[in-house]
């Protein structure tokens, strides 16, 4: 086994050990319910961000309706569980699929437009979804939202302990990470990146840009959908204010800060926006302000975000070492 594969395997072992250990450590800390809640929220936002990164980062589609697919997953799965007594895991699937259907409804007409026009029409669709959720009282509960969402259970284990949620969400986040990575590194993903870097050029090389844009959009919608279906039972309560344009901007800024176009960016971004207010308690009132300013600064001066910076540093370090070796 060569040195670099050994290093890689070692890295994965450490990562898996870390993912198993973190909830166990939290379980022995004071205030663990709150810490688990934060961890779960950060994981949900990571999953949501990874789906968003697929369309926004890798395919270059500035979609601002991602939050609508998240809300579809949350509402559909909850309504199936509460009104129709469907098993949670079935309604989880139904929630994810309903997000794909909504994504097709929004994406297929919108993707005919380019650039900022595309962003604007997705804002319009997202507002339509939000207004429907607010006003369709008999189904969505209107501004009251849906209350007392039941806890979930799996193989007879119920999720009263938040640690189970943490493990479930870690598994889902890992699966999402692998899905996004496999997709982006496949032929399909290369088409995504070609579209982002120049849609006209991609078209002339024989890439069916419309089809790949739709694939990217729908995969992102699917991920947002199951993130929503996970979000509802964790919160035990959802209402339209969880799915506003403001939340969408929050997801966007997390991705930009963490680093769009990198696999780890959405995770780092989500951890950053969830952890920062806990660390900087005196600055909590200014948190969104800091987030907005950071987002603007990063786009202008540092488009790679945190992960882009990390990769740059790593590349610099490697070059320095290999240059040093050559001099010997």
């Amino acid at each position: 086994m060569s040195n670099s594969t050994l290093k890689k395997v070692l890295g994965y072992v450490i990562l898996i050990a870390l993912l198993v250990a973190v909830p166990l450590v939290i379980n022995n800390l004071p205030g663990r319910a709150y810490l688990f809640h934060l961890l779960c929220i950060a994981l949900i936002f990571s999953i949501l961000g990874m789906g968003y990164n697929l369309t926004m980062g890798f395919t270059g589609l500035s979609n601002l309706a991602h939050i609508s697919m998240f809300s579809a997953g949350a509402y559909v799965s909850t309504i199936l569980v509460q009104r129709f007594d469907v098993n949670y895991w079935l309604s989880f699937l139904a929630g994810a699929l309903s997000a794909v259907v909504l994504g097709a409804f929004i994406g297929v007409p919108s993707l005919r437009l380019r650039g900022t026009y595309f962003s604007i029409i997705t804002i319009a669709f997202a507002q339509v979804v939000y207004i429907v959720e607010r006003n369709w009282f008999s189904v969505t509960g209107g501004t009251d939202g849906l209350l007392e969402i039941p806890n979930i259970s799996l193989f007879g284990i119920d999720f009263l302990n938040k640690m189970n949620y943490a493990y479930l969400f870690i598994v889902m986040a890992v699966l999402t990470f692998l899905l996004v990575k496999a997709l982006v590194q496949s032929r399909v993903g290369r088409a995504f990146i070609a579209i982002r870097d120049g849609a006209d050029l991609a078209l002339t090389t024989g890439i069916n840009t419309t089809m790949y844009k739709i694939i990217s959009f729908l995969t992102g919608s699917f991920i947002a959908g199951y993130a929503g279906a996970l979000y509802a039972p964790l919160m035990r309560f959802i209402d339209p204010e969880d799915f506003t344009l403001g939340v969408m901007l929050n997801v966007l800024s997390a991705l930009v800060i963490g680093g769009a176009r990198t696999f780890w960016g959405p995770i780092i971004g989500a951890l950053f926006i969830i952890a920062l207010p806990e660390v900087l308690i005196p600055l909590r009132a200014y948190l969104f302000l800091i987030q907005g300013i950071l987002m603007v600064l990063i786009i202008i001066y540092f488009p790679g975000g945190i992960m882009g910076g990390v990769y740059k540093l790593m590349g610099w370090w490697k070059r320095r070492r290999s240059a040093g070796g050559a001099n010997k």
Binding site: S62, G115, T116, S119, G246, L249, L252, S253, V256, Y286, F288, L289, Q291, G292, I293, M295, V296, I299, I300, P303
Partner: peptide, 18 residues
């Protein structure tokens, strides 16, 4: 120029928070 729209989204957050 191609980043101006996303920057304006950041400015929305900044203005509202101010």
């Amino acid at each position: 120029r191609q980043n101006l729209f996303v920057i304006s989204l950041g400015l929305v957050i900044v203005a509202q928070e101010v």
